[in-house]
């Protein structure tokens, strides 16, 4: 993956597949602590302890069972390559929480990339799932709660052209301004 936002897209697809009703995506950039932390929390079907072990390290299972994907191991590896760490907690019937912490200034840290398009696509393509998106850069914060958006829309679809365009612009502008004001403090 070339961008952290592509990892996010991939990991959130798992939450969608797990039939989550609410998916929280939080990105916290703390320049002073030199960390970038991504946390994805869902209330989907969850996994057993055994399953969690298997998905984190798909090559430890000697048996050839079903093909296990690479999304989670790749995300973990990306964090670890930057001196960061990775946590996964899951409970059957409750949900899953995945955290990846990256060294912010580490040479091997991939750029966050186009997170606005990523969140846009997730939100528009999964209209029946709610998203709480939070991005913090030092003291600045951008928060988008699709429950709030849907309440305003009152039945008008997110896939309506005007709504879709508005949402993408809204995400882009807010993402840009997170960084613009950083220098000023």
């Amino acid at each position: 993956m070339e961008e952290l936002s592509l990892h996010i897209l991939d990991i959130v697809q798992n939450s969608v597949a797990a039939k989550a009703e609410l998916i929280e995506v939080e990105i916290v950039e703390d320049i002073e602590a030199d960390t970038l932390t991504i946390t994805i929390t869902d209330n989907g079907c969850g996994m057993s302890e055994e399953m969690v072990k298997k998905v984190v390290d798909p090559f430890t299972t000697g048996r050839k069972t079903r093909r296990v994907g690479l999304g989670i191991p790749l995300f973990k590896l990306a964090a670890e390559l930057t001196g960061g760490d990775f946590e996964i907690e899951s409970e059957l019937g409750k949900g899953t929480r995945i955290l990846a912490r990256f060294g912010h200034s580490h040479i091997d840290r991939q750029p966050l990339g186009d997170i606005a398009s990523t969140m846009h696509q997730l939100i528009v393509m999964n209209e029946n799932t709610d998203f709480l998106y939070v991005h913090k850069v030092n003291g600045n914060e951008f928060k988008l709660d699709t429950r709030e958006v849907k309440e305003i829309l009152g039945g008008v679809s997110l896939a309506e052209y005007e709504v879709m365009v508005w949402l993408l612009e809204y995400l882009k502008e807010n993402e840009d301004s997170l960084y613009k004001t950083v220098g000023k403090e």
Binding site: E148, I152, G155, E162, W166, Y170, S177
Partner: peptide, 19 residues
Amino acid sequence: MKSLAELQEIRNRTIGNLT
């Protein structure tokens, strides 16, 4: 800057001609 108020306007405009 885009705002949620603007979304409200879009909504009011769109609700009439939903395809």
